[in-house]
Computed example of a mutant assay.
Amino acid sequence: MNKVMKRTYSYAFLLPAAVIYLIIFILPTIMSFFFSLTRWTLFDWEFIGFDNFVTFFQEASLSIGFKNTFIYAVVTCLLKVVIGLLLGVLLTSKIRTRGYLRSVVFFPTLVSTIAVGIAFSMMMHPTLGLINKALEAIGIPAVDWLGNPDLALFSVALTDVWKGVGFATVIYIAGIMSIPEQYYEALQIDGGNAFQKFRHIIVPLSRSATNTVIIFAFIGGLRSFDLIWSMTRGGPGYATDVIASIIYKQYQAGFYGLATAGNVILFVFVALLAFPLNYFLTRKEVDL
């Protein structure tokens, strides 16, 4: 069998995956770019050029949506990195219940996002919620978690962290467990303590895990919609409106072409932030 036939034979195994990728991702992406230039319904369409993009950028709450999207992504990303790293260190230590605790930490990741949003909306109710009842029991005044414009976005972000930190923890556990034992033995010989172990071994040598968590968490935060919509629907006012919720409101109003243009803008916005971030993070990764 010559080289050409061998290469063709190898590529043949990739063909089914390539066809599926083409149908599920490439074609819908191309169609989205096209229909963003039209005024369309389920049965008809009319080409209108860049009018949808001009109209979308004139949306009154768009500047707030961009700001909220960025804040939400940064807050959830930072908290998932910090908490996930600390939990990863804890759950790779020699505590007896680490197997059970790993299951407990990862469990929220498996729960439906909408179910989590509804549950936490009830728990954060200003008068009947479980959280405020617990605060009042220890003498702390009740807080309007989702009704206060200054707190609503951060309340949803904390819920997102609770749900997603288990995934970050699993990545950190894998990263920490891949560190060779020789590093720990050398530190022990030199008389290093637990803090020095964390600072000089775990943090730098789990950089790949950190980069992975940052990329996934940041992109997830930029694209977040379902949790925010199920908890606040973008309110109060525009306090928790993000780009995705603004797009959904356009769909609800029947402006499908306008909403499609919003999706294209969100795609470009995420790409412009995610690709440079990924390049910046991965160029200095530590190879073990």
Rank of each mutant, 00 (worst) to 15 (best):
V104C: 03
I71K: 13
F280R: 14
T69W: 01
F216A: 14
I215W: 04
W45S: 15
L153E: 12
Y11I: 14
V111E: 02
I71N: 05
V4W: 10
I201L: 09
Y183N: 04
F66I: 15
F50C: 09
M123Q: 01
L62D: 06
N263M: 13
I179K: 07
T97D: 04
I176N: 05
L135Y: 05
M31H: 05
F218Y: 12
M122T: 14
D51P: 00
D226M: 11
Y248N: 13
G262W: 07
F43S: 06
A186Y: 00
I201S: 04
S208K: 13
L22G: 14
L205R: 02
A194S: 13
K67H: 01
T8N: 13
Y72N: 01
T55W: 04
E46R: 14
M231W: 00
I214Y: 01
A186W: 03
N2G: 15
F53G: 06
Y184Q: 07
V4E: 13
L85H: 00
I173M: 12
A244I: 02
S103G: 15
M124F: 15
L79Y: 00
E59W: 02
S245A: 03
T76M: 12
I138R: 02
G220N: 09
A157Y: 06
S93M: 01
K284A: 13
K133T: 07
T41E: 04
G166I: 07
T210G: 11
G99L: 12
V116E: 00
A259C: 08
V264H: 02
W45C: 00
D241E: 14
Q252T: 10
E181G: 15
A174C: 08
H200V: 09
A194V: 09
A119G: 06
P108F: 03
L288T: 02
D150I: 02
T29E: 05
R7D: 13
T260S: 08
L42I: 07
L273I: 15
I201Q: 06
S36Y: 04
Y238F: 04
A253R: 06
L146R: 05
F35W: 11
I189H: 05
T29H: 00
P180L: 13
L14F: 13
Y256F: 14
L86Y: 05
P236W: 08
A274R: 01
G262E: 01
F47V: 11
L78S: 14
L205N: 04
F34P: 02
F35A: 00
L128N: 10
T282F: 05
L86N: 10
Y279C: 03
L86W: 11
L37R: 02
V75R: 09
D226R: 09
F255T: 01
S155V: 06
A174D: 00
S206L: 06
E136D: 10
I265R: 06
S206K: 09
V89I: 15
M123G: 03
M177F: 01
T113F: 00
D226Q: 07
V111Q: 01
N211V: 15
P16M: 09
D226P: 10
T76Y: 12
N2Q: 07
A186H: 08
V213W: 10
H125A: 15
G166L: 07
Y100L: 15
I228L: 14
M231Q: 04
Y183M: 09
D226Y: 08
L146T: 08
F57P: 11
K94I: 05
P180V: 10
V242C: 04
N2I: 08
G117V: 11
D44C: 06
M122A: 13
G139L: 14
K133F: 07
L153F: 12
F70C: 12
V105Y: 08
I201M: 07
Q252K: 07
